[in-house]
Each structure stands twice: as C-alpha cells, then as structure tokens.
C-alpha cells in the first residue's frame, strides 16, 4: 500500500525540479518539501476547479428563467454521501502520509552532523562556531549535514531559511534544533519569523554556503579578528556579541548596569560607600568578579565571565570603553591608568 502511495509522491516531481513559481530556489538538491508542496498544489487546483466548475455550470444551466421551475430531485443519497466522504478521506490520507514521511526526514538529524549553536535576541542573530567564534551571519560548509542548536536570550524568535525549507522557533529557556544539508554554494536569506517586537523585520542574517576549504579558511580568519582589527573596534564587536549591550548602554542611559559612556577614568561611588576610579583593573575585575565592587544604585546581578572571555578579549573591551570616554569633552584620558602588565595594546 505504501508503495502505491509513494508513486503518487512523484506527481509533484516535474515541478519540484525547477525553480518553481511558488517556491524560492533551493540551496539543497533534496528539497523533500517541494515535492509535497507541488503534490498538494496539483490536488488543490483540481479540487478547486471541480467545485467551482460545477458551481458555475449549475449557475448557468439552472439559472432562474420565467416559466422554469426547480425540478424535484432526491433529497438524500447515501451512496453519493459515502463517495464524497471516502474520496476526500483518501486524498487527505495521502497528503498526510507524504507530509509526515518528509517531515520525519526533516526532523531526524543524521549521525555526524556538523554542530553550530545559535543564540537569538532582540533583534540580532548570533552564530557560535566550534572554535568559539561568534558571527552575525551563518557560514556553513556545503554538502555536509549541519545541525543548529538554538536558544533565545529574551523572547521567542523563529529561524527561517527559505532556501533550505527549514524553520524552527528559538525559545528562551530551552534548546530547539534544526538540521539541513546545503549543497549549492551561495548566499541565502535567513529571517526571523516569530514576531519579536519593534525591529522584528530587520532581524535578518545571511547564510553563506561555502565549500569546505573556503569555510575552514574563513573560520580561521574570522576567529582572528582580535588580531586583525584595532583593539577598540574589536572591543566594540565583543560588546555587541557578548551581550554587554543588554545592560550597559553607550549613550549614557542607565540600564540594569551603568552606561559605559564617559566612565573611564572617573571616580565612582560604590554601594558600600567607597569610591573607586574606573580603570583597567576595575574593569577587568568587574568582568571576572562582578560582585566585588558594585556601583551605588545598581543591583549585583551580573554573572561572571571567568573562563568565558580571554585576556585579549578583556583588553579589547577596555580599549572600547576607553574610546567612549575620549569623545567626552569633560574628561581627557588620565594617566592614573595602570598599564603594569603591558599587554599589546598599542601597535
């Protein structure tokens, strides 16, 4: 019986092999979804033509004319009712089966997937690569099964790659995952489809499908941005990517934590009454041991980044925060900064 069902599968095949009118070009050579889509499209169109065709025919043939009365016909017929009950049951049965089989293929990741992690927040995607690199866009090697393990930092988002026919919500407080195999190198859209607030429609990213060599070369290079970018620029990237921006603004507005604007070199009053100069050491300590000294008026809610950021990362962040004070007319960089460890900040 399933063999018979499988032959129906191929009804949609001629359509699926070209970039159809209805679906965007696929990045995969095995878009199981497309066949089911076109199968349903064919069935739908035929059924629609049948119903509306009959309706129009009756409308013309039996329109009200002077002198013609409605003819008496049977008011029920079990055989007819059974026919138009059973035939739709069979049709939807076929569609369900096809959809289910393709869905299970889409759900079951093959062994040996290349694993990437995805973190979503309002309103940006972060793709976390095996070597710890975090990027705004998704780069994947072509021809290999890739699995994304995703979670959200705030509200529910939805990851959709139309060209790969995959979509999955990204939910806070749990992991969801999708897998796919992109065969055709190129750039494809990645969109957020679960409504997530003001900038929902700009929460977009690009999927770069690259050959394995290109991918490896890119990843190696991309992970080195600390070395290739000026420290303050690299720090800015880190600030965006590591979630600092959620609590610390750069425009002076107080968030969950103090703003970074113009704080460097200033003296701040702490919750316990002491005054501390915001310098390299204070920033370093605040990243690694956030509870040690809390600026007055803020809650001790930051969690430690010990083990999560490298020394170079911290240096870059310090440079970034420093750069935010340079713009301040009130405060030029002071010399109270202790550069004792003399790390490669300058060039």
């Amino acid at each position: 019986m399933f063999a018979a069902l499988d032959s129906i599968w191929h009804v949609g095949l001629p359509f699926a092999q070209t970039d159809g009118f209805w679906l965007p070009g696929a990045a995969t050579t095995d878009p199981a979804m497309d066949r089911v889509f076109y199968l349903i499209l064919v069935i739908c169109s035929l059924l629609f033509l049948l119903v509306v065709g009959l309706m129009t025919f009756f409308l013309v043939r039996y329109r009200r004319l002077p002198g013609r009365k409605a003819e008496k016909t049977a008011t029920q017929n079990i055989l007819l009712e059974a026919t138009w009950t059973v035939i739709p049951v069979v049709i939807v049965g076929v569609i369900f089966y096809q959809g289910f089989v393709a869905y299970m293929r889409m759900q079951t990741a093959p062994p040996g997937c290349y694993d990437l992690r995805v973190s979503a927040r309002q309103w940006a995607w972060q793709f976390i690569y095996p070597n710890g690199h975090i990027d705004d866009n998704l780069h994947v090697p072509a021809g290999e099964p890739v699995r994304l393990t995703m979670t959200s930092e705030d509200v529910i988002h939805g990851l959709w790659i139309p060209a790969l026919r995959v979509k999955m919500d990204v939910v806070p407080g749990r992991y969801t995952s999708v897998w796919f195999r992109a065969d055709k190198p190129g750039a494809y859209d990645l969109l957020c489809t679960e409504y997530c607030g003001d900038e929902h429609s700009s929460m977009l990213a690009t999927v770069e499908v690259q050959t394995r060599e290109d991918y490896d070369a890119w990843l190696k290079d991309a992970a080195n941005y600390l070395k290739t970018l000026p420290p303050a620029e690299a720090g800015k990237l880190l600030y965006k990517r590591r979630g600092c921006a959620q609590c610390h603004s750069t425009d002076g507005t107080a968030g969950t934590g103090p703003s970074f604007l113009g704080i460097f070199g200033k003296s701040q009053k702490m919750a316990d009454g002491r005054s501390v100069i915001i310098d390299d050491n204070y920033i370093r300590e605040s990243i690694l041991e956030p509870q040690a000294k809390i600026v007055a008026g803020y809650q001790p809610v930051m969690s430690t980044y010990k083990g999560l950021v490298s020394d170079d990362d911290i240096t870059a962040l310090i440079e970034f925060i420093k750069s935010l004070s340079k713009k301040s007319p009130l405060r030029a960089p002071t010399h109270s900064v202790d550069r004792g460890e003399g790390q490669g900040v300058g060039k």
């Binding site: 199981a32 889509f37 349903i40 889409m106 979509k167 679960e194």
Partner: peptide, 14 residues
C-alpha cells in the same frame, strides 16, 4: 492542506 501537512507547514508557517 498546505498548513495541515507537516512538512509544507514548516515552510509556510508564519
């Protein structure tokens, strides 16, 4: 029917 079918729903959902 596109939305009831699991695999096509994934593509056209939302």
């Amino acid at each position: 029917l596109f939305l009831g079918s699991l695999v096509t729903n994934v593509h056209v959902h939302d």
